[in-house]
């Protein structure tokens, strides 16, 4: 059984159709990259999979681990093992990072009927993961993403990924706005989390993230549809020829 099966997915926001029939199948252990020009629907796809309610699915189906993902609320999807690293991580003043993360982990554990983690169970793992992402322990006591630099916010997303250990990790343009050092650290975090049980959907505008994260498949999303799919070499081709080429290939561009 595939980890994720997307079939003829159509989605709109405010009555404006953005996804116009996306098909994609991925297995556990694989890394799929979705590339495409701005406005092609990459982030919409991520948000729909994370079950954001502002996006309306008008047609199609999505199975996650054999279950109907589109029936799930965001928290159900998260507890079942879907994780989206936000393109724009949200600041939440007044809630400490460590407290937030432990609450999230405990929500997932509770969902599966497991005992909650206390601070003693939580801290050693947290500290280890902070080190993996080269993050300062002082961040623990600060409010979620508040006053964080762009790079710190993105690393914090990967930190959450590393703590929550989802089955499906969606990275929504995690590389955008990162300098090369931060990019390397983020990639290192992602690579450390790769496993035969886990799938990655890496959404990116640029090929350079794929220099650090080895991808199995590349899909090019153009105007709400996957225009081309291929191996890692497709990313290089895109880098060289630009998205105009893919658009022409798909017969969409003027």
């Amino acid at each position: 059984m595939a980890l994720l099966e997307i079939e003829d997915l159509h989605a709109s926001v405010d009555g404006h159709e953005i996804l116009k029939g996306v098909n994609l199948t991925m297995n556990a252990g694989e890394v799929h990259s979705i590339m495409g020009p701005n406005g092609s629907g990459k982030s919409t796809l991520a948000q729909v999979l994370a079950r954001r309610e502002t996006y309306e699915v008008t047609r199609g189906k999505v199975l996650f681990d054999g279950k109907d993902l589109l029936e799930m609320k965001p928290e159900d999807a998260a507890c079942q093992g879907v994780f989206m690293a936000f393109q724009y991580p949200v600041e939440i003043p007044g809630i400490g990072n460590a407290y937030f993360l432990r609450s999230a982990m405990n929500a997932v554990r509770k969902y599966h009927g497991q005992d909650e983690l206390d601070a003693m169970d939580f801290l050693p793992l947290y500290k280890e993961r902070l080190k993996l992402l080269e993050m300062d322990e002082k961040l623990m006591n600060r409010s979620v993403n508040e006053g964080f630099s762009g790079g710190e916010k993105k690393r914090n997303e990967i930190l959450q990924l590393a703590m929550l250990e989802p089955k499906l990790a969606i990275l929504d343009e995690t590389d955008s706005g990162l300098d090369i050092d931060a990019l390397r650290i983020v990639a290192q975090g992602v690579n450390a989390m790769r496993s035969p049980e886990r799938g990655f959907l890496v959404i990116t505008h640029y090929q350079r993230l794929l220099d650090y994260i080895t991808t199995d498949f590349v899909h090019v999303l153009v105007d709400g549809k996957i225009a081309r799919s291929g191996g890692p070499e497709l990313a290089l081709e895109l880098e060289e020829k630009g998205y105009g080429w893919a658009e022409t290939e798909a017969g969409i561009s003027a």
């Binding site: 954001r52 998260a78 949200v90 939440i92 003043p93 609450s103 929500a107």
Partner: peptide, 26 residues
């Protein structure tokens, strides 16, 4: 903010309570 918390697994009511508390806790 609500979606961010829910996307990490907190149910809507808990997420809402947490945000209310955070606002008050300032």
């Amino acid at each position: 903010q609500l979606f961010y918390l829910r996307a990490r697994g907190l149910d809507e009511k808990s997420a809402r309570n947490l945000l209310l508390y955070a606002f008050a806790a300032e």
